[in-house]
Design a protein around this nucleic acid. Structure first.
Length: 453
RNA sequence: GGGGAGGUAGCUCAGCUGGUUAGAGCGCUGGUCUGUGGAACCAGAGGUCGAGGGUUCGACCCCCUCCCUCCCUACCA
């Protein structure tokens, strides 16, 4: 009798990535890595597990609830990292003697949040994180946004929108509107409905429930949302509050500066309602959306955290950073058809068939030749091949795993002078002209490279 | 966190008002074809009908609890 089988299931909110999607993910990560290194960011690696005391407290109440926590076998209280920022702060504080400021680093890897899973939200997900430690505003902010924007463009996702704001600015605005800080979120949530529900309903709700004094200013302020950044928008921000403050000037200055770096127009929006959930942000905050996939939520976000390092070090240090959520980015890119759903299962570009078990050595030598030339090649591994009889199975396999080219090394061709093989293009349909041709072994590599271009 | 829908083969699903050995398509494995892929035909493997308990002579079907998935909503990556 068979034993009880174990159900091959994953934990809730955890996923496997089969080769076809894992390849697509890794391509995206590689692009970001290159973009970041182009700006001089260096990689950092930190442990997935941190002590509870490092992890907790400055994250905000909601965040603390979402941290995976447990006691290890020695009863040490530990937790899985919730994001990379806290680990970064700890690492920097512990290695100040070995780190030169400014410290520019990126980190890619999984983080864990005990949240209710849904589309675009997982309990284990991969973040691509970018931070600059030790420099005051706002050049680091500019560079960070520019580097992430570059990565997105390299992927082909020109349909991104950065929303930016400054938390302190928000406080000033609220004060000028006569809103108590604890009501801030409610006020902006209601204001968010302006488009959907109309002005009257919003006015009633705001002046009624929330006792907002100055509705007109709030409305004017809200209308700054979704305004593409321009001179005009920057001026708008300056007048959104009754008293144009130094802070407003600072934000407007930032917007002009980031435009110089090529991030503007449809890609940049000043969003005065943006605050973000994590408590450690002290100034600049931003989020990135993929236009057309806003319902999935933002694909990235971040901000400035000038007090966080002080938790771990007597040396106060400023910092700014943001991270892109790879999983949600993939979902958004698929939804907006920036990338295709399915890549191949195999990484090989050429499939080398085995015509007959007795001719495996010949096939193996062809595969070696291709690999030597830097062409990814896969050879048929199964035994039991007789004089071409299993070719159809081999082609079927190669086609299914997405290998574009196949080589058939048959006895007749190899016996020729010069020895030759059949090179077949599996991408063109069966029966079409030019689906395959005889190529001398000496020209195989060149011909393959030509076809793959 | 709040509201709604659903869980039957690897996948997509069917299964009459509860009635004997639970089905289809696709996929998978093998066969027919002794030099060529998406085909056809044949055969086969694969299900404790999400889990546990209850009602009943009898449950995939009815009831309860739990688990899981999806959609809307709030928040986040």
């Amino acid at each position: 009798m068979a034993r009880d089988r174990i159900k091959p299931r994953n934990l809730r909110g955890f996923r496997d990535f089969l080769p076809s999607s894992a390849q697509a993910r890794q391509r995206i990560v590689d692009i970001f890595r290159k973009a970041f290194e182009l700006y001089g960011f260096a990689p950092l690696e930190t442990p997935a597990l941190e002590t509870e005391e490092v992890l907790l407290s400055d994250m905000g109440v909601d965040a603390n609830k979402q941290i995976y926590r447990f006691s290890d076998l020695e009863n040490t209280k530990v937790g899985l990292r919730f994001d990379f920022t806290v680990s970064l702060a700890r690492t920097v504080a512990a290695n100040l003697n070995r780190i030169s400021l400014p410290f520019k680093r990126y980190q890619v890897g999984p983080v864990w949040r005990y949240d209710k899973p849904k589309r675009g939200r997982y309990r284990e997900f991969t973040q691509i994180d970018l931070d600059i430690i030790g420099v005051a505003p706002f050049e680091p902010e500019v560079e960070m946004v520019a580097a992430v924007a570059r990565g997105l463009r390299e992927i082909g996702a020109d349909n991104f929108v950065f929303r930016v704001n400054d938390r302190r600015y928000l406080g000033e605005v609220l004060e000028s509107l006569g809103v108590e800080p604890e009501k801030a979120k409610d006020v902006f949530r209601v204001l968010d409905k302006l488009q959907k529900q109309g002005e009257k309903k919003v006015r009633d709700e705001l002046t009624g429930k929330l006792l907002l004094q100055d509705f007109e200013s709030a409305l004017e302020y809200e209308r700054m949302q979704e305004v593409a950044v321009s001179e005009q928008a920057a001026d708008g921000l300056l007048t959104a509050t009754k008293d144009a403050s130094g802070l407003a000037k600072y934000l407007a200055g930032f917007l002009k500066r980031i435009e110089q770096e090529g991030v503007g127009g449809d890609n940049l929006v000043a969003d005065p309602s943006l605050t973000r959930g994590l408590d450690y942000y002290t100034g600049f905050v931003c989020e990135v959306d993929i236009r057309g996939a806003e319902a999935l939520g933002s694909v990235g976000g971040g901000g400035r955290y000038d007090d966080l390092l002080g938790r771990y070090s007597a040396t106060p240090l400023t910092g700014v950073g943001m991270s892109v959520g790879l999983d949600r980015l993939m979902d958004a890119l698929l939804a907006t058809e920036v990338i295709a759903a399915d890549a191949g299962q195999s990484t090989a570009r050429v499939f080398v068939t085995v015509f007959d078990d007795s001719m495996r050595a010949e096939s193996a030598s062809i595969a070696r030749m291709l690999r030597q030339a830097g062409v990814a090649a896969e050879m048929w591994l199964a035994e039991g091949n007789k004089t071409g009889r299993t070719l159809s199975r081999q082609f079927k396999y190669a086609d299914k795993v997405g290998i574009p080219l196949a080589v058939v090394a048959g006895e007749d061709e190899l016996a020729k002078d010069p020895p030759s093989v059949q090179l077949k293009d599996l991408r063109t349909g069966f029966g079409e002209e030019g689906k395959q041709s005889e190529v001398p072994l000496g020209e195989l590599v060149a011909r393959v490279k030509e076809l793959l271009d």
